[in-house]
Design a protein around this nucleic acid. Sequence first.
DNA 1: TAGATTGTTAATCGATTAACAATC
DNA 2: TAGATTGTTAATCGATTAACAATC
Lengths: 210, 210
Amino acid sequence: MSEKKVSAAVIRRLPRYFRYLGELLNQGIDRISSNELSERMGVTASQIRQDLNCFGGFGQQGFGYQVDFLYNEIGNILGVYNGYTVIIIGAGNLGRALANYRFFNREGYKIIGIFDNAQEVVGETIKDLTVLHVDALEQFMGQQQADIAILAIPRDTVPDIAEKLVKYGIKGLWNYSFAELSFDEPVAVENVHLSDSLMTLSYKVAQLEK
Amino acid sequence: MSEKKVSAAVIRRLPRYFRYLGELLNQGIDRISSNELSERMGVTASQIRQDLNCFGGFGQQGFGYQVDFLYNEIGNILGVYNGYTVIIIGAGNLGRALANYRFFNREGYKIIGIFDNAQEVVGETIKDLTVLHVDALEQFMGQQQADIAILAIPRDTVPDIAEKLVKYGIKGLWNYSFAELSFDEPVAVENVHLSDSLMTLSYKVAQLEK
DNA sequence: TAGATTGTTAATCGATTAACAATC
DNA sequence: TAGATTGTTAATCGATTAACAATC
């Protein structure tokens, strides 16, 4: 295994390549050079070749890259085809929005459960799934293998639930709350701070006005 | 003006400082050294001092930083107190979730309009706001100054609407779609690619299994 | 084969970290 | 004043870009 420890910067660019290649596929383009892709994406061809070669030689000299092949390879690297199962913790507005997020179905992610702690929400049906009480999590996790949990609950409720999920064997946490998470166990965590993104935008807007 | 062109890496860290300082305020801590903050945040004290000094000397030698003062300064830099007005384009699940996102009210952002193109949604009330038809955007923008527009609509509808919004004088676009935006006019754009975040998580999960 | 474009090494650039003089 | 900690310069590290030999 040529595990050279790929930098986070490279990893974060992979989904973008994946998107652009998917787009090319839709357009019926079956072959592309790093140079043409670089023009479309607004990055350097050098960076594209460097990035890809962290994982292997996916191109052919003198020819370029086969779009469908490269698309699939990047999808594999990202684990898009691993059929990861997803549960949503929190059936509020955000949880519902994510439950209906089409990306999950378009790619290989499958939502298999939605949980909430409010009695008036438990029993409701969202996207063919009956909302369960969070207290049912342990039992649920004993019966089904959920790989990823989306944390769409208020900050103060997160640490407790997150710890339980890890205990029950969750592999990844997609955290939409402000809570900072860290565990002794090997768990993948990805934080989505929408407010950070908004404030970054806000900064850019403020800059325009100067 | 000491406009030294602050790097994007620094800008993206500011919201995180802002969050941590807000937390310290809540805890009643009124003074902190770069060293202690670095331990809490898991970054180097050097980086904190370097970052802050891109904007000015906010500390006191031998003493540290006054938490409330620094919090406010960073808020100012980020434009959090500029009272930016926000409109939401798209009253689907995501638009509704964002309409109810408490961060807006907690900080100085004010949602003043929600728009959709579906007749069955227009007229509905979300968060005290009546959903308007997107065709009413021009008139609306003629009467009120909306600073930021949230694009929570399908990709193919984005370019057209975005162009109009820019024409009507929008200053910032918070783009949740896959559409890639670019304009001749000076407009701030911040893209939120939730799917990129999910795939990054997916990659990390896949790594655990090796 | 000649032309094109990759894979990869080397050069550059920028960002992070370390060190320390300034100063509260 | 002495001690502490900043602001800032210098050193290091890593990431990006450029160049080119390998090869399809």
